[in-house]
Amino acid sequence: MIDPEYCQMMARYNAWQNNQIKAAAERLTEADLRKERGAFFGSIMGTLNHILWADLLWMGRFDGGAPPNGGVAESVSVTPTLAVWGAERFRTDGRIRQWADGLLAVNLVGNLTYTSAVLKKDITLPMAQCAVHFFNHQTHHRGQIHAMLTAAGQNTGDTDLVFLPEEKPWL
């Protein structure tokens, strides 16, 4: 299904996109960050926090670290401010890259069993599927943030994976 190089590329993409979103979000007022915008997690800040919460949850499953506090309902308030979010996002993106850079093909084979925060029961899925879901979840919700930032008059820059700065073999 996937290999370590896929995870490494997606970890770089994740950090690149988070940096671009952070720069755009920093140009907004606190009220604009917290404005209800009809997204699943309400506001830009709520959605930023949810992605961070989910990344910490999945990384705990992948690398054995501690999961974040609270469940999905509390995920929207995992950090109190954009500045705190930015610092935690930076640390988490580094953790994701370190995990991905240390992967071997064998690490993506077999199953992962975890307790679902949503279903409140143990789930067993192929590890490769869990890794794909992890990166897809980030991209999905960042797309929502991109739409909200665009509606708020901000430009986040390129979002296409083919424009990942480290991934331009044709140049």
Rank of each mutant, 00 (worst) to 15 (best):
H50G: 04
H50Y: 06
I51L: 14
L52A: 01
W53E: 03
W53K: 00
A54T: 02
D55I: 03
L56M: 15
L57R: 05
W58M: 10
W58P: 03
W58F: 10
W58Y: 08
M59Q: 02
M59D: 07
G60C: 06
G60T: 04
G60Q: 05
R61W: 01
F62R: 09
D63T: 15
D63C: 15
G64V: 09
A66K: 15
P67Q: 14
P68K: 00
N69F: 10
N69E: 10
G70P: 00
E74Y: 13
S75R: 08
S75K: 07
S75E: 04
S75Q: 06
V76L: 02
S77V: 12
V78D: 00
T79P: 01
T81N: 11
A83D: 03
G86W: 08
G86D: 12
E88P: 07
R89D: 06
R89I: 02
F90N: 11
F90I: 05
R91Y: 03
R91D: 03
R91K: 12
T92M: 11
T92P: 00
G94Q: 07
G94A: 10
R95Q: 13
I96E: 03
I96P: 00
I96H: 00
R97S: 10
Q98F: 04
W99L: 04
W99Q: 01
A100I: 01
D101E: 14
D101S: 11
G102V: 02
L103S: 05
L103G: 02
L104E: 13
A105L: 12
A105T: 08
V106E: 14
N107P: 05
V109H: 09
V109W: 09
G110E: 02
N111Q: 09
T113W: 02
Y114K: 05
Y114T: 07
Y114H: 04
Y114S: 08
V118G: 10
L119D: 11
L119K: 15
K121D: 01
D122T: 10
I123K: 05
L125V: 12
P126S: 10
P126F: 04
P126G: 07
M127K: 15
A128D: 00
Q129D: 08
C130K: 06
C130N: 13
C130M: 13
A131H: 08
A131M: 01
F134K: 07
F134Y: 12
F135M: 02
N136L: 15
N136Q: 09
H137F: 04
H137P: 06
Q138Y: 07
T139A: 00
T139D: 09
T139R: 07
T139K: 07
H140S: 04
H140K: 12
H141V: 01
H141D: 04
H141R: 13
R142Q: 09
G143Q: 07
G143R: 03
Q144P: 04
I145C: 04
I145V: 15
I145W: 00
H146F: 08
L149Y: 07
L149C: 06
L149T: 02
L149D: 03
T150L: 10
T150R: 13
A151Y: 10
A151H: 14
A152S: 14
G153I: 10
Q154D: 01
T156E: 04
G157K: 14
G157W: 06
G157Q: 03
T159D: 01
L161A: 11
P165V: 05
E166V: 05
E166G: 13
E167S: 14
P169L: 14
P169C: 11
P169I: 06
P169A: 06
W170V: 14
W170Y: 13
W170G: 09
W170N: 13
